[in-house]
Design a protein around this nucleic acid. Structure first.
Length: 276
DNA sequence: CGGCAAACCTGCGAGC
DNA sequence: TGCTCGCAGGTTTGCC
């Protein structure tokens, strides 16, 4: 799925096409996503106008004009596309469809169903169980070297796992953690508590930088991800290590190649020479 | 609490 | 061609 750059790209694409518009028909073809779609979901949404779209970590929050918020997560394989977009041929996994007053059709498709859509009152968004304990956004002001150092202090878990923890920083996933650790020259196996001071400063700055670059490229398109418009992101061409097992390290002019290891069940790609 | 494996679910590519 | 296996961008749960 979509990590922060992909989710933000989708958010922006949707924003341009649905904010200020009313849903004239909502359909939920399936109830069992990661969490069940609420009772009367379609009825509650029909007639609502989208006021604004925000993002928290990997969640999209769509504020409606009846004081409700539509909370969306794309899981691993979720997409939201607009009618006319270059859609996947398989409509089998179109779980939720909105028809807007101007004819725009918004489709949520998710083969693996690790994603979700749910509703909550706008005044309760910050207390919602999915969002309450989320850490700061890596692109916001709260996230910086001192913050990161504080959160990593005393932690024995590998730095890779800490950065995947959405309670520490919200929005990173497997790809961008691998890329950021490469750029920062830090081993994914390094114990979190050793990332302090200048190292934490450098890592925070590097995370921000890699996400900014990915955002500029419209995110990364591997198997599933497309922008709302159906266009592909192209940051995948700029990966230094992710998915590049066995290839030469782009920064070591020696025989070192990118290694793949498994950490807590997930692939980690890194260069053992550059990253210490 | 910390750390890890497994579970959730479907699709796709590699290898036989 | 067709089967099986492994792997996939996330998150939660349950076990030691």
């Amino acid at each position: 799925m979509p990590e922060l750059p992909e989710v933000e790209t989708v958010r922006r694409g949707l924003e341009d096409h649905i904010v200020g518009k009313r849903i004239i028909e909502a359909k939920a073809h399936r109830q069992n996503l990661r969490i069940p779609i609420p009772e009367n979901f379609a009825a509650r949404l029909t007639g609502c106008r989208f006021e604004r779209l925000e993002r928290r970590g990997k969640y999209i929050l769509a504020y409606l004009d009846d004081s409700a918020v539509l909370i969306i997560h794309l899981g691993m394989s979720g997409r939201i596309t607009l009618e006319g977009a270059n859609q996947q041929p398989n409509r089998r996994h179109d779980h939720v469809v909105f028809r807007m007053e101007d004819g725009t059709v918004v489709t949520y498709n998710d083969p693996r169903r690790f994603g979700l859509m749910t509703l909550c009152r706008d005044v309760e968004v910050n207390k919602h169980r999915l969002l309450a304990s989320m850490g700061p956004d890596p692109l916001g002001n709260e996230f910086n070297g001192p913050y990161l150092a504080t959160r990593l202090k005393g932690k024995r878990t590998p730095i890779k796992a800490a950065l995947l923890n959405q309670q520490i920083v919200a929005g990173l996933g497997n790809i961008y953690v691998c890329e950021a650790l490469f750029d920062a020259g830090l081993s994914p196996k390094r114990s979190s508590h050793t990332v302090q001071g200048e190292r934490a400063e450098r890592l925070a700055a590097t995370i921000r930088q890699v996400l900014d670059r990915a955002l500029q490229a419209g995110g990364s398109s591997l198997r599933d991800y497309v922008q709302a418009s159906g266009e592909l992101g192209y940051f995948q061409h700029q990966f230094s290590v992710y998915g590049r097992e066995g290839e030469p390290c782009p920064n070591c002019d020696c025989e070192f190649t990118v290694k793949r290891i498994v950490q807590s069940g997930r692939s980690t790609f890194y260069c053992a020479k550059r990253q210490r």
